[in-house]
Nucleic acid binder design. Structure first.
Length: 768
DNA sequence: CGACGGGACGC
DNA sequence: CGACGGGACGC
């Protein structure tokens, strides 16, 4: 049909794959058909290009690709939900062969296709990942010139999903200027419900690059896209969009980062919320909650009635950033032109108030160089861009804590209890961290490993430097949890102790110290009550955290299953069946290989808690831009205004689990309490949680009055509860952990750095 | 506070 | 190769 002249790229070179993807998602076979990599034409140098993710090719950390994950639409190849759930009314534009009759096909938009490409150039690549029903190279109907993009129609969305995961940003077609973009066609989007995997992010450091932003968000899931809005001068405007592979990741990130994470050089914590539709029409009923029957618009009374108080769908997280400014990949090297950065740095905050004592305190493995600012480059820094920014970057640590303070005096019409939600959310962070490592080991989790690890090791550092301690104090709890969670996975040893160099104060030792602290001097009463309240008020949020975890666990399980299957079954399978072999153990793991067996058993134990409880619910609550609640099913892609009964039931189950656990703990603790000394305030806390229903919100705010003690409690709890957490693993257990974990953060935050330091100091290794 | 690029429907 | 169809954000 339309072959085209202009053969710009004479070389028969095929697709040049982005380097980093090489190991993981190359289908075993099919190589012959589509020689990739090979001696590829260097043309596809994606790095300098202005597009996002020019860096994706960097070898450093992003090892595993985005595959192995169910994507936002909740499909994991194979099992599928009865498609019938697909709404008929709107979704399928009736009549069309494409959309009628089951809506099977899925059309993808493919961008960055060389205008000279032919179908023969394109099709094979996509056939590697699914049944291609059609390839449509779009060209201007007048000039006949190709437009540089095409549409690929797959037999089903599962195939399409696979293709997206495998190809988006992963290949550069010969002659193209950047990697191909693979996503659902606009026209398809409305069939798949709201894309709630995209976040709007503001309060970013204007000097931050897309990469840096990605690194922050990558802790919570696979970041597919980062776009920073820039002014005419190409300068970032401090806000942008982060797109995840699915909404759970997005939610996790939002939970953790919003209102808490302060980028270095910034005074305000990040604003993170679901992005509103790009199109001028914000919330057309046709798109998202499209169903619900006639007269069921956002403005109908029904909806309003359905509206709920404020469920913190967009909570603020107790996230304690790994480090204010992620250590950038070493090789990212230097900006050639320093000149271009003239005026920069001006808007960045000075070091106001924060002691400039933590030069080397950031990743990089740099030993904390005492006091010197020497390695702090002057303003010109931006060239070195990566370490130097410290120059004007006040110790992120301090900043990271500040946000928490701020969150305590939260602006918006948020109930005073809200701040404590931080706690829970931090859980999701810790959880994420905990789960990441294992998953990465499995090669299933597309997160920058180095980041997670760094977070760990950094937290462990807790060196004598007081300044850093503040950070440590806030990080430790999370890591403690992470560690705890690692345990059941058998990962703790590797994951934590496997970083001997940096680990100056292993969690275990911390815990021990904490345990050794006399605990009865605590004015616990109020605290406990407050905690109790926290428990209550944060239930909703915890639900989310729990849900996320369960999701992740599920994914892990599924991954394992598929792995097993794939390893058992013949190697010659459909190119797109099953995940890639995950044998490669990244060198970055400090040579600590994790037994491949870790996953299965413990995980099952985790996600198969006491009894046959529903582990997940595909329904999740969302808030439309207008503020109306609606519900979206990640599997069926249905969305509706009314709360699905499934969800209600699910929540009830979770609630029950919670209560159950509480009771168990109550018993457990009553026993202990009867003992001579009250050694564990946290126990009492749990007790109180049960006994004290709802306290006046005011008290919550006062929580911060008792800073130093919190950490102890927290850690203690960690130790006391592990069994519960592991074996019950129910949402309740998780919740518990979360809650307790959070406190130290809040308190540390509330009282500022000194407190944190104090705490850290007080808990320093025995000798002192 | 802030809000969207890059290419978006051929035959 | 066809073309949903209610009811209209809010600065």
């Amino acid at each position: 049909m339309d072959r085209h002249r202009g053969d710009r790229f004479g070389d028969g070179g095929k697709y040049s794959r982005m380097p980093s993807r090489w190991p993981s998602d190359t289908p075993p076979n099919q190589h012959q058909r589509f020689p990739r990599g090979g001696g590829i034409s260097g043309s596809g140098e994606g790095f300098s290009g202005g597009r996002y993710h020019p860096y994706r090719g960097q070898p450093d950390y992003s090892s595993a690709g985005g595959q192995g994950f169910r994507d936002g639409h909740g499909d994991l190849g194979g099992h599928q939900m009865p498609m019938n759930a697909q709404k008929r009314g709107f979704a399928g534009r009736g009549g069309s062969p494409d959309y009628g009759e089951g809506n099977k096909f899925a059309k993808l938009f493919v961008g960055s296709v060389p205008k000279t490409a032919t179908e023969e150039d394109i099709r094979p690549l996509f056939e590697e990942h699914g049944d291609v029903v059609e390839v449509a190279l779009i060209k201007d109907w007048r000039t006949g010139q190709q437009q540089g993009f095409c549409f690929i129609k797959y037999a089903s969305s599962e195939h399409a999903d696979r293709a997206i995961r495998a190809l988006h940003n992963q290949f550069t077609l010969p002659g193209a200027t950047g990697p191909i973009q693979v996503k659902y066609a606009d026209a398809e989007r409305e069939r798949f419900g709201p894309a709630e995997d995209k976040l709007f992010v503001a309060s970013l450091n204007r000097r931050a690059t897309e990469k840096e932003v990605e690194e922050i968000f990558a802790l919570y899931g696979h970041v597919e896209d980062v776009y920073l809005i820039k002014d005419e001068m190409k300068q970032s405007r401090g806000c942008g969009f982060v797109k995840f592979s699915n909404r759970d990741m997005a939610l996790a990130a939002m939970n953790a980062l919003h209102g808490t994470y302060v980028m270095r050089g910034c005074e305000q914590p990040l604003i993170v919320r679901f992005a509103e539709p790009k199109r001028p029409r914000p919330f057309d009923q046709r798109n998202a909650p499209a169903f619900g029957g006639p007269g069921f618009g956002p403005h109908s009374d029904a909806v309003i009635l359905n509206r709920q108080p404020e469920k913190f769908d967009e909570p603020r997280g107790g996230h304690v950033p790994h480090k204010g400014w992620p250590p950038l990949s070493p090789q990212s090297g230097v900006l050639p032109s320093q000149s271009s950065t003239q005026g920069l740095g001006s808007q960045t905050v000075g070091m106001g108030g924060i002691p400039p004592t933590l030069p080397g305190s950031f990743g990089d493995g740099l030993p904390p160089s005492n006091g010197a600012l020497p390695n702090l480059a002057p303003i010109s820094s931006s060239s070195q861009s990566f370490n130097p920014p410290l120059a004007q970057a006040p110790p992120s640590i301090g900043q990271q804590i500040l946000p928490l303070q701020k969150s305590l005096q939260l602006p918006q019409n948020v109930p005073p209890a809200l701040p404590l939600h931080n706690a829970l959310i931090s859980f999701s962070h810790a959880q994420t961290q905990a789960l990441q490592a294992p998953m990465q080991q499995l090669g299933q989790f597309p997160l920058p490993q180095s980041i997670a690890l760094n977070s760990f090791s950094q937290a462990q550092q807790v060196p004598g430097l007081s300044g850093q301690l503040s950070a440590s104090s806030s990080l430790t709890p999370q890591n403690a949890t992470a560690a705890a969670l690692h345990n059941p996975l058998g990962l703790q040893q590797q994951g934590l102790t496997g970083v001997p160099n940096q680990q100056q104060l292993p969690i275990s030792s911390i815990s021990q110290h904490l345990l050794q602290q006399p605990g009865h001097q605590l004015p616990t009463q109020m605290l406990l009550q407050q905690q109790a309240q926290t428990l209550q008020s944060s239930y909703q949020t915890s639900q989310q955290a729990i849900f996320q975890i369960q999701q992740q666990l599920q994914m892990m399980q599924q991954s394992n299953i598929s792995q097993q299957q794939s390893s058992q079954s013949a190697k010659q399978q459909s190119p797109w069946s099953g995940p890639p072999a995950t044998t490669t153990t990244p060198a970055s793991m400090h040579g600590t290989a994790i037994p491949s067996t870790i996953s299965a058993a413990p995980l099952h134990a985790l996600s198969a808690p006491s009894g046959a409880v529903t582990s997940t619910c595909n329904w999740t609550e969302h808030t439309s831009p207008e503020g109306f609640k609606y519900y979206y099913n990640s599997v069926t892609r249905e969305s509706k205004w009314e709360k699905p009964e499934e969800l209600t039931v699910f929540e009830q189950q979770q609630q029950q689990k919670l209560l159950l656990l509480q009771q168990q703990q109550l018993l457990l603790q009553q026993q202990k309490i009867s003992a001579p000394q009250l050694k564990s305030p946290s126990e009492t806390a749990s007790q109180m949680q049960v006994q004290t229903p709802v306290q006046s919100v005011q008290q919550v705010a006062q929580t911060q009055v008792q800073p130093q003690i919190q950490p102890r409690q927290q850690t203690q709890l960690q130790i006391l509860q592990p069994s519960l957490v592991y074996h019950q693993a129910s949402g309740a257990a998780s919740h518990q952990t979360v809650q307790d974990i959070s406190n130290p953060q809040l308190h540390g935050a509330g009282s500022g750095i000194q407190v944190s330091q104090e705490w850290a100091w007080k808990n320093k290794p025995a000798g002192s």
